[in-house]
Design a protein around this nucleic acid. Structure first.
Length: 829
RNA sequence: GCCGAAGUGGCGGAACCGGCAGACGCACUUGACUCAAAAUCAAGCGUGGCAAACCCACGUGGGGGUUCAAAUCCCCCCUUCGGCACCA
């Protein structure tokens, strides 16, 4: 405990506005939260997902950053060297829209917004090391985004190809699969259409297996998020089998996870986009009908096309293939329910054991053949109402008859491979990540197209985004029209060449920002490996669950790829992940359109940041959704007032030299303080239960008020210790008032640089406990008993109670269960 | 349709490994202070029974089960939220 010095009296009233502004200034001047690598302390990297600088902080941000701040401050007090940075994910459409609609320069608009938000974050009392601030739209950052892209490009992990891609007509750009939600753009909700375009991709599928397997190495991630990623990657094992065409040389390759049902194939279905279709059309007698069908299906939008609700439709092509396992002739159909983009774009159809095939076969009167019999033996074509998809025994399957179908999957796969009919294959739902965007406000893709040399990497970085461009209301990217940008020379041959005019998806920028924080000012390289290796991985990452797939999977991919290139030591970026719940008002997410938005600035102005923080931490556990309540905010404010008055009241006692007797009341108060400390510590260490930690502090304050009532002459030693502990444990939650009270109680230095206090186990010890006595499981008596009472003594005491005897009456005692220090249960019959 | 999470007072929530259900806060009621109100302090506050209780019964979405003992474990069902959605 530091020495006390004479201090000014605290004002009677708690006035957060004044003190919060004062400490904002003092902390900034003292660079209180600046960190450097330090080999003598354990490091702790605490990170919250950085925001898009919209210019206005919303409650979701407040919650996200408050949670992170409590963790950062708690670990700092716990002796860790804590990295707690903040920055801006500042490329993106809103800046460009502002330019188009209001003629504002996007860079300037972004810069202004950043200023506004910085101020709001500072007001919240967040302990960021602002010297590490990064802005993804600035050259000193995006040149390294470009550089990292080139490293992936050279490693064969970035490529350009023509493909049917998602196009948002409103945003006027392509989208990654992950950005399409129910057939609509995740940003603006417009219906997404398909376009055949040449686009840049990252080969994330090369990491599909690792992204999946590594999930097991992430025990600190919520199961929910891991499951979502697992489903998104969508790994399935099966075999790819070639069905030779009846006429001609070709064959139709299909992918199936159910090779055990291959003897039950009665037809096959191709996607209308399948490359073989054109060939089949040439010889088809019903060519016109087929073309009509294809035209119809292709016209349908994605949502209808892929909905389970949509009726399955198909048409026979007139051609046949041969089932290579039994030589049967199999008609080839086209169908709207087969996806060109998954597997081979063609399926074998087993209507008896696949529900989709069953429905299709029933509709078009295609034959059915049972090849798996249920253990009850009741499966027959005649009695079937739906496909039989359970396990069973193989029938009608040549030499494989009699096998259990699970075994048959292996045996038939082996056979297919031996006979070279096909081979085992793993398929993924995951597609490569489409990273190019037809927008202006993003990092330019550093590629130059030369007529002689083709696509050439531009190593002369940064490729600067030109500032003076014309924004047109049409919504098209102005980069393509910017001649001074487009026209350049080829780095290889020096001849005339043109630049790529697409920019990166902003998710590319945010896939490595956590690495840059380790070395944010480096102008020679993206980051020094030793600095990144010191700070990585992120010990605690905090953000909204809406990034469960997008940002969190892209960042994992990036980290793995950079690890393989030898640029970073870790291959997983985030060790522990906390996904915080939403902030609701009237049961719904706060949104402008619903008119239920509560402005954080308004709350801070009215009650102070400490109140806002305390409310948001207290109202619900962090993972759960939080319902906003004006009344509960006032409750949080009332609590801080209560602490303020207590300390103000006791200021005289603290300064007093008078020794008072330390009696039972003092001992009890001390016990409460150390109990609270233990509870807060446990709640912050094991799991981030801020709500119960705060309730423990509230109980301590209640106990202190109780003591004040009881003891007209409070003991300065006890009061001093209790107040000191109270302020220390409040510090991570409500940093401003804690700092003010810390100073006002005569301490030197910042409360936020103090070591977390250790609770005194001796202070917590009690001599007596209350033991509950039950008769047949119902509580009938409570006894005050010595803590060290033996089981036998407890039983004796319980039976001696007249009340207990009353309930036992003349019944026989069957059993007595004794749980030391807790309970005695007497079982009677 | 499939996968996952959650259902506890008037409300937000607590209850760690099966051991006193409802901590803490909000709302509400009462008392003190005040001419009065607000603020503050103190006390009460699951439902039903009773004049009342320190008494009794019931009570953690519903139904069953395991156990001396279940909010907690098992089975079935209902509701809400989230994710995926013809992935062969």
């Amino acid at each position: 405990m530091g020495g006390r010095r004479m201090v000014e009296r605290l004002k009677e009233k708690y006035e957060p506005g004044e003190i919060e502004e004062k400490w904002q200034r003092n902390w900034a001047a003292a660079e209180l939260f600046k960190v450097e690598e330090d080999q003598d302390k354990p490091k702790y990297y605490c990170l919250e997902m950085f925001p898009y600088p919209s210019g206005k902080l919303h409650m979701g941000h407040v919650r996200n950053y408050t949670i992170g701040d409590v963790i950062a401050r708690y670990f700092t007090m716990g002796g860790y060297n804590v990295l707690h940075p903040m920055g801006w994910d500042s490329f993106g459409l809103p800046a460009e829209n502002a330019a188009i609609q209001r003629g504002i320069n996007p860079a300037l608009w972004t810069q202004q917004n950043i200023k506004l938000m910085q101020k709001q974050l500072t007001q919240l009392g967040l302990s960021y090391d602002w010297s590490r601030e990064i802005t993804t739209s600035q050259q000193d950052y995006y040149r390294w985004t470009q550089w990292l892209f080139l490293q992936l490009y050279k490693a064969g992990l970035a490529y350009k190809k023509k493909a049917a891609v998602n196009w948002c007509p409103s945003c006027q750009t392509v989208l990654a699969n992950e950005q399409v939600v129910n057939g609509a753009c995740e940003r603006c909700d417009s219906e997404v259409i398909h376009k055949d375009l040449e686009q840049w991709f990252f080969k994330i599928t090369a990491y599909a297996d690792r992204l999946l397997e590594n999930l097991e190495k992430l025990p600190g991630w919520p199961e929910k998020v891991k499951l979502m990623q697992e489903n998104w990657i969508g790994r399935s094992e099966g075999v790819e089998v070639g069905f030779p065409l009846e006429r001609g040389e070709g064959k139709v390759s299909i992918f199936t996870t159910r090779p055990d049902t291959i003897f039950g194939v009665t037809y096959m279905v191709l996607a209308p986009e399948h490359p073989l279709v054109e060939e089949l059309l040439a010889t088809a007698p019903n060519r016109k009908e087929l073309e009509d069908f294809i035209g119809q299906v292709r016209k349908e939008d994605d949502l209808t096309r892929t909905s389970t609700e949509t009726e399955k439709r198909g048409i026979f092509t007139g051609s046949y293939a041969i089932n290579p396992l039994n030589g049967e002739k199999v008609p080839i159909w086209l169908g709207n329910y087969v996806l060109a983009s998954y597997g081979t774009g063609a399926v074998m159809a087993v209507p008896t054991h696949d529900q989709r095939d069953f429905e299709f076969a029933k509709k078009y009167n295609l034959p059915l053949k049972v090849v798996i019999q249920s253990p009850r033996g009741d499966i027959s074509v005649e009695s079937m109402r739906e496909a039989y998809v359970e396990d069973g025994t193989l029938i009608n399957s040549g030499s494989f008859c009699g096998l259990n179908n699970q075994e048959a999957i292996e045996k038939i796969s082996d056979f297919i491979e031996q006979e070279k009919l096909g081979k085992r294959r793993v398929n993924y739902k995951l597609r490569d990540w489409l990273i190019s965007r037809q927008r202006y406000w993003g990092a330019p893709i550093p590629i130059i197209y030369c007529e002689k040399c083709g696509a050439v990497a531009d190593e002369n970085l940064p490729v600067v985004l030109p500032e003076n461009v014309a924004f047109k209301p049409g919504g098209q990217s102005p980069l393509a029209d910017c001649d001074s940008f487009v026209n350049t020379t080829c780095p290889t041959c020096g001849g005339p060449a043109k630049r790529e005019t697409d920019t990166f998806d902003t998710f590319v920028c945010s896939s490595w920002y956590f690495l840059r924080y380790a070395d944010p000012k480096n102008s020679e390289e993206a980051f020094a490996r030793e600095k990144v290796d010191y700070w990585m991985g992120v010990d605690q990452y905090i953000g909204g669950v809406e990034h469960a797939i997008l940002h969190l999977m892209y960042s994992r991919f990036f980290t793995m790829a950079l690890h393989d290139l030898g640029l970073v030591g870790v291959d997983e970026p985030f060790v522990n992940l906390l996904t915080q719940g939403m902030v609701l008002k009237d049961g719904a997410k706060m949104s402008k359109s619903k008119g239920n938005v509560v402005d954080p600035t308004y709350i801070i102005d009215k009650y102070g940041a400490d109140t806002a923080r305390l409310f948001i931490l207290f109202a619900a556990p962090p993972e759960r959704d939080l319902e906003w309540s004006d009344k509960a905010v006032e409750g949080a404010h009332r609590f801080l007032n209560r602490i303020w008055r207590l300390v103000a009241d006791w200021q005289d006692v603290l300064g007093s030299q008078k020794k008072q007797k330390s009696g039972e009341a003092e001992q009890e108060l001390r016990r409460q303080a150390h109990l609270a400390l233990k509870k807060v510590q446990e709640d912050l260490t094991d799991r981030f239960q801020f709500n119960t930690a705060i309730s423990a502090i509230m109980e301590l304050v209640n106990a202190a008020y109780h003591y004040r009532e009881q003891a007209p002459n409070p003991d300065p030693t006890t009061v001093g210790e209790v107040v000191e502990l109270l302020i220390l444990m409040l510090a991570p939650f409500a940093p401003f008032i804690s700092e003010e009270l810390w100073t006002a109680t005569g301490h030197e230095g910042s409360v936020h640089k103090q070591a977390w206090p250790q609770y005194d186990p001796a202070a917590i010890v009690v001599s007596e406990v209350t033991v509950v006595v039950q008769v047949n499981g119902k509580v009938r008596e409570r006894l005050a008993v010595a803590v060290d009472a033996t089981d036998a003594e407890l039983e004796k005491l319980a039976l001696a109670s007249p009340r207990v005897q009353e309930f036992i009456g003349d019944k026989q005692i069957r059993k007595v269960i004794v749980i030391p220090k807790k309970l005695v249960n007497i079982v009677v019959a």
